[in-house]
Design a protein around this nucleic acid. Structure first.
Lengths: 254, 254
DNA sequence: ATTGACAAATTGGTTGGACCAATGGATGAT
DNA sequence: ATCATCCATTGGTCCAACCAATTTGTCAAT
């Protein structure tokens, strides 16, 4: 048999904090450390792992950087929901020191657009009835004028997450949550607030979609969702234009 | 104007290593620290940031966890290509202590399938002629029987990356590189090696695709790529079956 | 009983220093 | 020119101490 290329692996020097971080990470992903639970104090963990507190802290920093845990002084380290974990580098790429990088934003929107469409296809195919009820609940929440405006927008974003759950695919679920968190990030929310959109805009779209699904017309349902995605994109692009005009006015002023 | 929900932000305590990590991260994403360049020694950086070496190291650990830098003892910290950065948690989710979690793998493949198709649509639409040449070069490499078997498989994976470059969308480029790195990860490569596939299987598909693009038949090109994606999926799924049968035989043995 | 102020215990944050270990380049013998 | 050796550089780990924020418990005032 031919020699496999990966037969000889680079002599990975196993660093202490790597071993610790890996064990903790797996414990979290396994569910042994459920979301919301607290890690033991650093000093205790260090003792238990038989490593110095410094090394243990380096491990915690890695996990914190990945968004798996949140650490607060005086309190401890709390396990975060794994699906919510880290936006990776998309966040830093889009939000260069607080301002929106409109060029990257366009790229992101383009990808999200594709993602949502493909995801929706699966969602429509695999959904369970009770999940349709959940979508309707969110729809009512969006339309409920007694609620806080931001809450209603948040419900709109949650539609994406609910759709991902309908796919019963963990990776889609992760991506959808990352997307929702991205859309919910302060710079984007603040920018959208200035556009003065109405959360209700999407309600008729959602209605058409749910009706189509119940009528077993997947193609029609997908077309409605396409409208929803395009609505999102349109909003994002007007954000871009807004950011660009701001940049221009600043450039002129200087 | 209505009160915005994010008016009051949680009093974020600014930790030293956060400030350092952020500055370094932005410097990397900005290109001020280009890929391949070396960071100054920890002791020098600590001096320059006016922080203790321990705190500086915590910052480096975060960046390393995100896959932005690689640190080697005796050598220093090297900036990695930003597009190659971190597989996030997909890797750890699929490769539970070295073995392949076939359930998650199926989810991942499903998503990748959708991603590649949507990405290819853009790639076909926006490609430049010289990029088609590059695809052909990779095709020749796959077919070149004088090369190392693994090199030829690697060329096949690089096709995905080249496609992403054709989209001229940075986010697709990131996703494609993450995908390639995922496919190139040791557990998957080792498993695939046992299937004894031939790298050349995809050559006719690529040929049909490039010919269709040159003939300005985007739909035909997309259909060929669909075949490529399905080839990848099929291979992945046989990996799953292989892993499952292994698990069964182990269960029986125990 | 509720509230508020205060103190103490808990817990993470930071620092300085010391020493170990790997790398890479300089040095020198062949 | 080649190779082995040595050594300066650089990251890895540990230790001990102290700072700072949070939480909790206590007690007095209302």
């Amino acid at each position: 048999m031919a020699e496999r290329g990966d037969r000889f692996r680079p002599p990975v020097r196993r660093r202490v904090h790597e071993g610790v971080a890996e064990q903790l990470r797996d414990a979290i992903l396994d569910g042994a450390l459920p979301a919301g639970s607290k890690l033991p104090p650093e000093r205790v963990l260090a003792e238990r792992f038989q490593v110095n507190r410094t090394s243990l802290r380096e491990a915690l920093k890695v996990l914190e950087g990945l968004g798996l845990i949140a650490v607060r002084q005086g309190d401890g380290a709390t396990v975060l929901p794994a699906e919510e974990a880290s936006l990776d580098l998309l966040g830093p790429m889009i939000f260069r020191d607080g301002r929106i990088d409109s060029a990257v934003l366009v790229d992101v929107i383009e990808v999200i657009q594709s993602l949502l469409l493909e995801m929706s296809r699966l969602a429509i195919e695999r959904h369970r009835p009770e999940q349709l009820v959940e979508i309707r609940r969110l729809r009512d929440q969006i339309a409920d004028s007694s609620l806080d405006r931001e809450q209603r927008f948040a419900a709109g974003r949650d539609v994406i997450v609910e759709l991902s759950d309908m796919t019963r695919n963990r990776v889609w679920q992760m991506l959808a949550r990352k997307t929702r968190n991205l859309l919910a990030s302060p710079p984007l929310v603040a920018a959208r607030a200035q556009l003065d959109r109405d959360p209700c805009d999407v309600v008729p779209i959602i209605d058409r979609c749910t009706e189509s699904i119940e009528a077993c017309r997947p193609q029609a349902a997908l077309d409605s969702l396409r409208a929803y995605v395009e609505y999102l994109s349109e909003m994002a692009l007007s954000l871009r234009d807004h950011a660009d005009s701001e940049r221009v006015s600043k450039a002129v002023a200087s």
